[in-house]
């Protein structure tokens, strides 16, 4: 492994790690005539935050939904904890771009919904949900309805709901894209705190280079039409520094520039 911010480029060989929690094997996906993903091989290491980054049309959300079991692949295989999966499972939890909160349910019921579907009793649901509502910073809003919350607060509900089912892997589909810029920064900082606190594996989809570099242990760059892995980057950034220092860190800025150089020719 290189120690500098210079990315490790492995365009075709499968990306391996010591303890893969999710393995993506030769995934192909077409929508009619459009080839969305071609032969994707990837491994996601346990306890790390990996970002799928790329311009629109590169299939990053499709790949995430295939991993989640929400969209079937045409060929290939997804393995979670070593076992092949075909649909959604309890070891994975999804955070939706548009929050996907039930407007008729309170924050409490929304956060506890995954447990409700599993038949967990009301007292236990409340205990678990209260803990995660507090963890994402929504204590006091338990009995509010989604329309009474701001966009940022709604996505906190979505994240608390995903935490509440205690999955090994959290799949986040552009979770901050519907949140305004100031809130997004706060959110990214909170996400890093939660990653540290929860010791889970995060797979994160975004189209923001800065966001990817700021939060990720590893960035998988996808190129569009058809979606393929073009680059894998391990940003070497000292996470113990303050958020402002990280954003001024030369390693951070170089990595952002590096990725932009890689993506530039896909834009237009």
């Amino acid at each position: 492994m290189q120690l500098s911010a210079i990315p490790a480029v492995q365009p075709s060989a499968p990306v391996t790690s010591n303890d893969p929690v999710v393995q993506v094997r030769s995934i192909c996906k077409t929508y009619g005539d459009i080839e969305a993903l071609r032969n994707i091989d990837l491994e996601f290491s346990r306890g790390k935050l990996t970002t799928l980054l790329g311009p629109s049309g590169c299939g990053k959300t499709t790949l995430l939904k295939i991993i989640a079991g929400l969209v079937p692949a045409n060929s290939g295989e997804i393995r979670v904890n070593g076992r092949a999966v075909t649909g959604p499972g309890p070891e994975r939890a999804f955070v939706f771009q548009d929050f996907a909160l039930m407007p008729w349910a309170t924050v409490m019921r929304n956060v506890a919904f995954g447990l409700e579907l599993r038949g967990v009793n009301a007292a236990e649901r409340k205990r678990v949900a209260t803990r995660y509502i507090e963890e994402v910073g929504l204590a006091g809003f338990e009995e509010k309805y989604p329309h009474e919350l701001s966009g940022g607060m709604r996505q906190r509900v979505g994240i608390a709901r995903a935490f509440a089912v205690n999955a090994d892997v959290l799949l986040l589909d552009e979770p901050f894209s519907a949140v305004d810029e100031q809130n997004r920064r706060k959110f990214q900082e909170d996400l890093l705190r939660l990653v540290d606190l929860e010791k889970k594996t995060f797979i994160f989809v975004t189209h923001s280079i800065e966001e990817a570099v700021y939060v990720s242990d590893r960035i998988v760059l996808l190129s569009p039409r058809p979606g393929r892995i073009s680059q894998v980057i391990d940003p070497k950034i000292d996470r113990s520094a303050s958020p402002d220092d990280i954003r001024r860190d030369p390693g951070y800025l170089d990595t952002v520039e590096e990725i932009w150089d890689g993506l530039r020719h896909y834009v237009d």
Binding site: G69, L70, P88, G89, R92, A100, M102, F113
Partner: peptide, 11 residues
């Protein structure tokens, strides 16, 4: 998206 949400939590 709500239907997907329900599926993702194995409803």
């Amino acid at each position: 998206s709500l239907v997907d949400m329900c599926r993702s939590f194995q409803g």
